[in-house]
Amino acid sequence: MSSAGTARLRILYFAWLRERVGTAEEEVEVPPGIATVADLVAWLKARGPGFAAAFTATKTIRCAVNQSFAGPEAPIATGDEVAFFPPVTGG
């Protein structure tokens, strides 16, 4: 259980985001007020130089919440799996 107002999230990073952040996945407890993907990005950017570098070009970053593509306004809640990655290049 997370304490009142905080949310516990599993965050995944792929491709060059993973390389810049320096980790593939982590469990984080975010403070109250982090209600959307955009809020989470702003919070992550303030965590250190690797995160700031990774999240500078937000136009080239895509997000999925619980394995579905999600925009900056998408809500996040405790227990969610949130993934950040560049535009996909499969096929």
Partner: peptide, 11 residues
């Protein structure tokens, strides 16, 4: 669709 909608990345 696979090129634009499936989460794969090439290096």
């Amino acid at each position: 669709w696979l090129k634009t909608g499936a989460p794969f990345w090439k290096k």
